[in-house]
Design a protein around this nucleic acid. Structure first.
Lengths: 218, 218
DNA sequence: GGTCCGATCCCTCTGCCGGGGGAGGCCCGG
DNA sequence: CCGGGCCTCCCCCGGCAGAGGGATCGGACC
């Protein structure tokens, strides 16, 4: 099956280069191109790409915003591969946090680029699976049973996620920059809503209901 | 040309393991070892390694600070490969932002580790997806790694499994028909072997390493 | 304007959890 | 035979967790 690729970059030269590289592969196909992040929802809806190559830095709607919006609204979003010039671009990390599946350096060799696209399209492997899933899960809506049924508030969900990283109450407090007492209140509410006796049971519920996931897989 | 590798980790066991793995490769050579991030500038200046393996989490100067300092002061710094236990460790993001070239999971297989070192040493191919893919590599399906590496006894494994069902120590004791003190001893041993602070972290490790799984699947 | 809810913080108090010891019985293997 | 794992149980103790109260503030909603 050919992998459907969409390219979004404000620099036409980059688009031409990427199109040439991607188009030369028998198993890859460029199904859409755009020069503005604002077009992303439209082209995704129309062409249903498997992989979306998008520049983090663009005038108007940048890759970060586009990614976030996409994962928040699309029922079956493409895998997002962020394009960047500098490997230490701070936006990249924000993009990854927003749910991007990986990133690609503009100066990477063509063979590396297409390999990255294939890897990303395969979906189940790659970069920071757990972290990405967690973040994507926070924005997008993939299924929890018990946790979703608990109707946690944003803050409570955040606290549960931190509990599921093994943090103690003081550590969560530090991370959220609030008092320990506040965290304890949230924890108490989470436990009550989930019907759990202690934080360990809550973390188990989080795993079992897919609120958090081990090493990958939706 | 042999790739010169320096290893910095506060855990001597990890250092021994890495040294054994790296040293066994004909094209890799361990030129320095340290247990404290404070030693990094010194060993880098003295031994001029190509690749620096460093643990993100260490008492005193951690990998993050060491990396930052190194890249800020060294004229020709080594490529930094960060060592971490959890792939979603928040420090990892910070380390990458600080200039690390990639990260290595402690539970990765030796072949994946040396491959990662070679990729990093090659320098220009800093493509994360490709590198990470080799690291995360064959992860899926059956991978106890962390838990298996802990070499738990039968009883300890049984206790961990019960911990992962959300049982308290008294409940585990009742289930196993032994005293609570016995259970506490097993729990203590499990925590020590897994390097966890509390039972919640142990349960997370059990899920993340596939020792137990949500809802099904091998 | 009043009500409800979410987020924040504070207090007390019970108790299990987890660390650090030690100690006896068992079976296996050198 | 005797050492070493493993399982079992015991004591002491500091500390955080979790229950149960109550309080303030802001925004959303009516």
């Amino acid at each position: 099956m050919t992998i459907r690729v969409a390219i979004v970059d404000d620099d036409e030269l980059i688009r031409i280069g990427l199109r040439a590289i991607v188009g030369a592969q028998p198993d890859l196909e460029v199904v859409a191109e755009a020069g503005d992040g604002a077009d992303v929802p439209d082209i995704v809806a129309r062409t249903r790409p498997h992989v979306l190559l998008i520049d983090v830095r663009m005038p108007g709607i940048d890759g970060l915003q586009a990614t976030r919006h996409l994962l928040a609204t699309s029922a079956d979003p493409p895998r997002v591969l962020v394009i960047t010039t500098f490997e230490n671009d701070e936006y990249v990390y924000d993009a990854l946090r927003a749910g991007a599946a990986g990133f690609l350096l503009k100066r990477a060799r063509p063979a590396e680029m297409v390999e990255a696209i294939r890897v990303i399209a395969a979906g189940d492997s790659v970069l920071f699976p757990a972290a990405i899933r967690r973040l994507a899960g926070a924005y997008g809506g993939s299924g929890d049973d018990r946790v979703r049924a608990a109707r946690l508030t944003d803050r409570e969900a955040e606290v549960l996620r931190l509990m599921a990283t093994g943090r103690s109450n003081p550590e969560i407090a530090e991370h959220l920059v609030v008092g320990v007492e506040t965290v304890k209140t949230h924890v108490r509410n989470v436990l009550a809503k989930l019907g759990c006796r202690d934080r360990t049971q809550a973390v188990i519920a989080a795993y079992e209901s897919g609120f958090v996931n081990p090493n990958g897989l939706p």
